[in-house]
């Protein structure tokens, strides 16, 4: 599942279209159940489709908040801390993880390299194409923007269609 090469590897770079609130809700629910549940039981209890449940779980897994041994979903690592954390601490936990994901890392490195620390949407989509199969680039884009915003990894202005580094960070 973690192989970086080949078609399978590029597939894992695809970002699920799942919001941060939904992921946090999943972790909070699991914690209230002792930190673990059977995936099928969970989907049934939430009256969610199994496919949709799996997508949320995959998103939480990408963020390093849960793992999925057998048919179970188990809260792990930062997922155990995030529930009692303050909002800035939550953002920091997510940020640390995002910085290790190839898609986020590549966009952030790109921003740091450019002179004015701004890149266009088109340029980012080109970068994404190197990491993600074409058909998934658009849907991954909105997650890239939204998770990136939550973690304050970068900003995005939809009027000018540009990404930028938050001020104060450009001198690091």
């Amino acid at each position: 599942m973690n192989s970086p090469e080949g078609p399978k590897g590029s597939q894992t770079n695809t970002l699920p279209e799942i919001g941060i609130s939904q992921i946090l809700g999943l972790v909070e629910l699991l914690i209230s159940k002792g930190g673990r549940d059977d995936i099928y039981k969970l989907a049934a209890e939430l009256s969610m489709e199994l496919g949709e449940t799996l997508t949320v779980i995959k998103a939480a897994e990408l963020l390093g908040l849960v793992h999925t041994p057998g048919g179970d979903v188990v809260v792990e690592g930062p997922g155990l801390k995030i529930i009692d954390a303050s909002i800035p601490e939550r953002k920091e936990l997510i940020r640390c993880k995002l910085e290790t994901l190839p898609v986020f890392k590549s966009v952030r490195d790109y921003l740091k390299e450019t002179v004015d620390h701004e890149v266009t949407r088109e340029e980012v989509l080109e970068k994404l194409a190197e990491l993600i199969p074409n058909e998934d680039a658009e849907s991954s884009f909105s997650t890239l923007v939204n998770w990136g915003r939550y973690a304050e990894l970068f900003g995005y202005n939809d009027d000018s269609q540009t990404f930028y580094l938050d001020s104060g960070e450009t001198t690091e």
Partner: peptide, 9 residues
């Protein structure tokens, strides 16, 4: 809101 988002909010 969906069920998980409403838990979080």
């Amino acid at each position: 809101l969906d069920v998980l988002t409403s838990i979080n909010l």
